[in-house]
Computed example of a mutant assay.
Amino acid sequence: MKKIVYALIIIGFAWSCKDADQTDGTLKVVTTTTMITDLVENIGGEYIEVKGLMGSGVDPHLYKASEGDVNKLAHAHVIFYGGLHLEGKLVEVFEKMASQNLKTIPVSDALDEKTLIGSEFFASNYDPHIWFDVNNWELITQFVVDKLSEAKPEHKAAFEKNGLEYMAKLKTLNENIKNTISTLPAEKRILVTAHDAFSYFGQAYGFEVVGLQGLSTATEAGVQDVQKLATFIIDKQVKAIFIESSVPKRTIEALQAAVQSKGFDVQIGGTLYSDALGNAGTVEGTYIGMFTYNVNTIVNALK
């Protein structure tokens, strides 16, 4: 069945690329995660048609392509995905396409490998949650500008203009994040979440970050993991821990219960957006809105 899916995608994709070369029509772009969809829409504007595979609250680590996704992929001119094995179940499909010289682009290629956070516990050996450092997202913005300009050179000026405007907003976001975090004492900057999605955030903004699960939500947390982290929370006097929108809340609730059973009252500080943005049409449904919301939620709960 997989071979049939690969063949359908590759045949359809090759035909759509040929068609794109022969017309001046709108560039058809497919994206995976909501973060990438938001970025590509900001840069491409009216000159591209973007179809995202994943919606709000969707876990990319466990996502499987549907029949509708196969149709979207087959008719795309360009596909942007995260890379670094973020989209675990789709990796084989994208690698198969790339081997046929089809336009599948991992946005992680924008970053120097030396700046990536490694992990001995994850298949790619690198943490794929690269969007949680705004500096990374600025580099990825320019990368997407360049790739869209290659695909549609007649609109290069528009893509570059949109890219510069968006990067200016990212710089403002970065300053606002730092200002908000500066109100939280350094000793309180300990972030405990459902899985290890926030290491780039911790590295960029001075937080100690601990996840109950590993980098991929496919990794299950055991009883020993819960007890070990419960002890850490008590030792560090962590005031609040956080649910993630794309991860079942039962894992953090189990951690809270384990801590409270030891006589320490830790609160659930709120829900953070990790592997997906909020609902489309809301402030949190944008990368900038999501990041602002997350930082405000973290700082307010840990103060």
Rank of each mutant, 00 (worst) to 15 (best):
V5K: 11
L8W: 02
I9P: 00
I9K: 02
I10P: 01
I11C: 06
A14P: 00
A14R: 04
W15M: 13
C17L: 07
A20Q: 14
D21M: 12
T23I: 10
D24N: 07
D24H: 07
G25W: 03
L27A: 11
V29I: 03
V29S: 03
V30C: 11
T34Y: 05
I36W: 05
L39Y: 13
N42S: 13
G45Y: 05
E46M: 06
I48A: 00
K51I: 12
G52L: 08
G55W: 02
V58P: 04
D59P: 03
D59V: 00
P60C: 09
P60S: 14
H61I: 09
H61Q: 12
S66N: 07
S66Y: 09
A74E: 13
H75T: 15
A76G: 05
H77P: 04
H77N: 15
V78A: 15
I79V: 15
I79H: 04
F80V: 03
G83F: 10
H85D: 02
G88S: 09
G88V: 03
L90P: 04
V91A: 05
E92Q: 01
V93N: 00
V93Q: 02
E95F: 12
A98S: 14
K103D: 11
T104G: 05
S108T: 06
A110D: 12
L111S: 03
D112P: 15
E113Q: 11
G118T: 13
S119T: 15
F122R: 01
P128T: 13
H129N: 13
V134I: 15
E138D: 06
E138V: 15
I140Q: 06
T141W: 07
F143S: 11
K147V: 14
K147F: 03
E150N: 13
H155G: 09
K156I: 04
A158S: 14
A158P: 04
A158I: 14
F159H: 09
E160A: 14
K161D: 08
N162G: 01
E165Q: 12
E165F: 06
A168V: 08
K169Y: 12
K171E: 12
T172R: 14
L173W: 09
L173I: 12
N174L: 03
N176T: 07
N176E: 09
K178T: 10
T183Q: 10
E187N: 07
L191E: 01
V192P: 01
H195R: 08
F201R: 02
F201G: 05
A204R: 10
Y205N: 05
Y205A: 05
Y205H: 05
G206N: 10
L212W: 00
Q213H: 08
Q213V: 09
S216H: 05
S216N: 10
T217C: 05
A218R: 09
T219V: 15
E220M: 04
A221M: 08
Q224L: 11
Q224A: 14
D225Q: 02
T231C: 00
F232E: 14
F232W: 11
K236Y: 01
Q237G: 04
V238W: 08
K239D: 15
A240N: 03
A240R: 00
E244L: 09
S245F: 09
S245A: 05
V247C: 00
V247Y: 01
P248R: 12
R250H: 15
T251S: 11
T251Q: 06
I252F: 03
A254N: 15
F264K: 07
I268G: 10
D275T: 02
A276G: 05
A276K: 06
N279H: 09
T286L: 00
M290D: 05
N296T: 05
T297I: 11
I298L: 04
A301Y: 08
